[in-house]
Design a protein around this nucleic acid. Structure first.
Lengths: 135, 135
DNA sequence: GCTTGACCCTATAGGAACTATAGACTCCAT
DNA sequence: ATGGAGTCTATAGTTCCTATAGGGTCAAGC
């Protein structure tokens, strides 16, 4: 009947997502329940593809599903002022920057620890263990 | 009777851990089952404090519980050559460095996206949404 | 017409590292 | 004796999926 109706596997391919993940997004309300064929197969169209791609892109950018849910709500209202969207983005950026700072410290510590173990001793005199052990 | 026996809350305080987390570590075999009082309370000593602090420090350094389990096994054998410990540390460092690289890219993208939304428009012309939406 | 294989369906469990809750017991100070 | 804080067990929830079991459906090839 309708042209261009996609099955779940097609949608998965289009949006580079796993089939199970799509069903999961539907279950938690991130994707709307699609129409079904007579034999109960889900069918999708390009709007679904767009929405799913948007979600996946946000995930790749590190947004949580809750943040994405909020972004989707905000962006569905065309007249909505967009400063809230910016706020979410900015707050997420701050999170990411904080995480980078943490990991950088951590990497420095690990480098220091790893340097302390050159020479192939045994555990009894291994400096790594001592470095990790708090005194 | 014995001096210096700690209850679970004391251990939690000493190692800056939550009580539930200690019980969880015990359940998954990361902490040994401690002795109990007649009234079934767990009792700990300084060895437990050390071990738990070691675990928490490793967690803070980003090691997984499985990695920590391995480190604990390795370090319990005093005669063991310590290059394996170094190997775990080095591999973990590589993980951390990769994660930093990923997040740095991500932060750059977010900054770009966020810059595109100065000016207080509405969703219909919001550049963030367009930037996130793949074409 | 039948079979085979790829796809689809639901429902449930698992994984990582905890956190939260419920309902009961214990301990200590007042 | 009573109240509140601490402890006990057991179970479910969190996040974001992934894996599995046990079935239906569809199109192609023989």
């Amino acid at each position: 009947m309708a042209v261009n109706r996609l099955k779940i596997g097609d949608l998965a391919f289009e949006a580079d997502t796993k089939v199970v993940t799509i069903r999961y997004y539907e279950k938690i309300g991130l994707l709307p329940e699609p129409e079904r064929t007579e034999t109960n197969y889900r069918t999708y169209d390009t709007a679904h593809v767009e929405r799913l791609r948007f979600i996946r892109r946000c995930r790749a950018l590190g947004f949580s599903l809750d943040q994405i849910r909020e972004l989707l709500t905000l962006t569905s209202d065309v007249g909505h002022p967009c400063d809230k969207v910016d706020k979410i983005t900015a707050s997420h950026l701050a999170d990411v920057e904080a995480k980078i700072a943490d990991l950088t410290n951590l990497a420095n510590e690990l480098r220091k620890i790893s340097r302390s173990c050159r020479g192939g001793g045994t555990i009894s005199n291994c400096r790594i263990v001592q470095a990790i052990t708090p005194d």
